[in-house]
């Protein structure tokens, strides 16, 4: 105790600088963990945390009996799978393509264009897509002029998951290339030179030098992505759910919001959120361990 007061007095300035930031992290990242307990409660906002009664695992039991929850998990996994299959490799391919360009000027110009959408909000991105592909958009006009009838890509429940993947690629393919460019830049040029002297053409050099060179980064990112399968673009989906319906567009995060916050089923929403959070954290830790075992440095 005396040592503590001594340290506090001696390093007052540093503790003072530490205070606001730590207060923020404790109040807005650690304190909410207490609210997780309502997953085990028959929570009512009027009674509050202290007044609501404990009901054990009832909320989880109800959750697993709920047919909507099953379809929610299915939607989440399907969307995640599509993104790993298509949105994940897209920046690798783009980085390889741009890397193969001889003109630095063209490369920089393309980079300037493809990085931009990353900084636009999902509301803006979807509004822009709406104007181009929606029922009153450019594509619909074109179809009408050509006499092909009406088209509204943005409100088609059947192709919605593909649309989501396309939007993710449009927004983040450029941003995703940055880390691969860094990996490519760290490959020694002599490797390419000697391969070329030995008669390997551009394609074979890409296959035998560039790809193996960036493989550790690819593996690391892929494993992290696998650790994150339960999180799919929350805002992106929330914004578009009204136009395609909940059946095609309910994912775990939107389920928590609609059921819990809007629907007033606080306990069930919190149970779904807790399940997602715990599995997500376990998977990130497991993914990191796998990444280390695969020879990469891992994140932590």
């Amino acid at each position: 105790m005396r040592r503590l007061t001594h340290a506090l007095r001696r390093h007052k300035a540093i503790y003072l600088l530490l205070l606001p930031g730590m207060l923020y992290f404790l109040l807005f990242h650690y304190l909410p963990l207490a609210g997780v307990s309502i997953a085990f409660m028959d929570y009512s906002p009027f009674l509050g945390l202290s007044g609501s009664s404990w009901i054990g695992l009832d909320n989880f039991a109800k959750l697993f009996d709920d047919p909507e929850f099953a379809s929610t998990v299915r939607n989440t996994l399907v969307i995640s799978f599509l993104q790993i299959a298509f949105a994940f490799p897209a920046p690798i391919l783009l980085a390889l393509l741009l890397n193969s360009l001889l003109s630095g000027r063209v490369k920089r110009m393309v980079q300037t264009v493809v990085y931009l959408p990353h900084f636009l909000s999902w509301v803006i991105v979807i509004a822009v897509w709406q104007q181009v592909l929606g029922g009153a958009g450019a594509l619909a006009d074109l179809f009408q002029q050509l006499g092909l009838g009406s088209v509204n890509v943005m409100a088609n429940a059947e192709t919605f998951k593909i649309l989501l993947t396309a939007q993710v690629i449009w927004k983040d393919v450029g941003w995703g290339t940055i880390i691969f460019f860094a990996a490519i830049a760290s490959i020694p040029t002599q490797l390419y030179e000697s391969a070329a002297v030995d008669g390997a053409g551009p394609l074979r050099r890409t296959w035998h030098i560039t790809l193996p060179g960036i493989l550790p980064v690819i593996v690391l990112l892929l494993i992290l992505k696998l650790g994150d399968v339960l999180s799919v673009g929350f805002e992106q989906i929330l914004l578009q759910q009204p136009s395609v319906g909940a059946e095609a567009a309910q994912v775990l995060d939107t389920f928590v919001y609609f059921r819990g916050v809007l629907g007033g089923d606080w306990g069930i929403g919190a149970a779904a959120g807790l399940l997602k959070g715990v599995i997500g954290t376990l998977m990130i830790v497991a993914a990191n361990r796998m990444a280390r075992r695969a020879g990469s440095e891992g994140l932590f």
Partner: peptide, 14 residues
């Protein structure tokens, strides 16, 4: 805090 998030509902309650 990079590893976990309490979730939408607990944050809302805080």
């Amino acid at each position: 805090t990079m590893l976990f998030s309490a979730g939408i509902i607990p944050n809302y309650l805080v």
